[in-house]
Amino acid sequence: MTQSLSIKHASYNLMLYPLCHKRDELLMHIDCSFLVRSAPHDAPILCIMKRVVRWGFGSYAETLFKTGKESVMSHRAEILQRAHDRAVESGLSYSGAVTPEDAWELLQTLPGARLLDVRSSAELQLVGAVPNALCIEWKTWPGMLPNPHFLAQAEHQLDKEDAVLILCRTGVRSDEAARMLAAHGFSSVYNVLEGFEGERDSLGHRGQLTGWKARDLPWQQG
Results as ranks from 00 to 15, higher is better:
Cys47Asp: 13
Ala122Gly: 02
Val52Arg: 10
Glu101Met: 10
Leu167Thr: 04
Ala97Thr: 05
Pro131His: 05
Ala43Ile: 09
Phe196Lys: 03
Leu106Lys: 03
Leu26Val: 14
Ala177Asn: 05
His156Trp: 06
Ala152Leu: 09
Glu197Thr: 11
Pro111Val: 01
Gln157Leu: 12
Asp162Glu: 15
Glu78Thr: 15
Asp42Val: 15
Asp31Phe: 05
Ser188Asp: 09
Leu193Asp: 00
Gln221Phe: 05
Pro146Tyr: 07
Val127Glu: 14
Val164Asp: 00
Val192Ala: 11
Leu209Gln: 06
Thr109Gly: 02
Val88Glu: 02
Phe186His: 01
Cys32Glu: 08
Leu106Tyr: 00
Met144Pro: 05
Met49Trp: 10
Ser188Pro: 01
His156Phe: 08
Asp102Met: 01
Ser90Ala: 13
Ser71Lys: 11
Gly91Cys: 06
Ala178Cys: 15
His41Phe: 07
Gln108Gly: 03
His41Met: 03
Lys22Leu: 15
Arg206Phe: 05
Arg119Gln: 10
Ser93Gln: 12
Val88Lys: 12
Glu194Leu: 10
Asp85Pro: 03
Leu145His: 06
Met180Gln: 15
Ala154Cys: 14
Met1Gly: 14
Val164Met: 00
Gly198Arg: 04
Lys160Met: 04
Glu89Trp: 05
His205Thr: 07
Glu194Thr: 07
Ser174Gln: 12
Glu137Ala: 09
Arg173His: 08
Ala129Ser: 13
Ile79Asp: 01
Ala133Ser: 14
Ser188Ile: 00
Ala154His: 02
Ser188Tyr: 03
Arg215Lys: 12
Ser4Cys: 09
Asn147Gln: 08
Ala113Met: 01
Ser187Asn: 06
Ser59Thr: 13
Phe57Asp: 06
Leu107Asn: 02
Arg37Asn: 06
Met144Phe: 14
Leu27Pro: 00
Gly207His: 12
Gly185Thr: 04
Trp141Arg: 11
